[in-house]
């Protein structure tokens, strides 16, 4: 009488163990089969051909200052004097005065190279990823300014919060060989 409940309990436990073991093995089996088919993508990155510069990268990132920064492809750049990414629309004087500039944090720097060319560089510590310059450059210039996720800042969230609000699904998981999607002339 005393042994009966124990053996019943043990029997149940054994059944449970077998079921659990089977569950672990079958889930692993399916997962391994899936993972063999193709390797998982580990990084979040913006596809510049899809990006619409809506400005949500600056506000939606889980970090206080977004991990998305503006990147400049010098080899695509036209080195224009009147730069659509650097100057606001309808500026009169092409100087570096605050009233003429587009970047809200003053992260773009302009350097005279030779007539009529100017070089533009971005200070990523100041950039907040709002994409205003990239929008300007894409609508008036060569599109050499564009947004990318800086991988050393990105926390690599399981689900990128920006990707959930991106209107054009430009932000996607990418594999290790596409960590940066650079434009290069």
């Amino acid at each position: 009488m005393a042994t009966n409940p124990i053996s019943r309990k043990q029997f149940l436990r054994q059944c449970g163990s077998i079921a659990a073991g089977a569950a672990i093995i079958s889930v692993s089996g399916i997962a391994v089969k899936q993972m063999l088919k193709k390797d998982g993508d580990n990084f979040w990155q913006i596809d510049p051909s899809k990006c619409t510069f809506c400005g949500r990268c600056a506000t939606s990132c889980v970090l206080t200052v977004s991990a998305v920064k503006c990147i400049h492809a010098n080899k695509v750049c036209g080195y224009c004097d009147l730069c659509g990414g650097y100057y606001r629309a309808n500026v009169k004087d092409l100087n570096t005065a605050a009233e003429n500039l587009k970047c809200p944090t003053g992260a773009i720097f302009r350097k005279y190279i030779e007539d009529p060319y100017f070089e533009y560089t971005i200070d990523e510590d100041l950039c907040n990823g709002c994409g205003k310059c990239a929008k300007g450059c894409n609508s008036f210039g060569n599109g050499s300014l564009y947004l990318q996720v800086k991988q050393e800042l990105c926390k690599n969230c399981n689900e990128c919060k920006i990707s959930k609000v991106c209107p054009s699904d430009a932000i996607q998981r990418v594999s290790a060989d596409k960590v940066y999607m650079l434009k290069d002339g």
């Binding site: 492809a73 695509v76 036209g78 030779e114 060319y117 210039g141 060569n142 960590v179 650079l182 434009k183």
Partner: peptide, 25 residues
């Protein structure tokens, strides 16, 4: 230095010809 993936860019302005020996960073 990652190989370029996106080659398309709208070339409104041609690539400048530098005479002062400017080197792309």
């Amino acid at each position: 230095s990652v190989s370029p993936l996106v080659a398309e860019a709208q070339n409104r302005f041609p690539k400048p010809d530098f005479e002062s020996g400017y080197i792309y960073p």
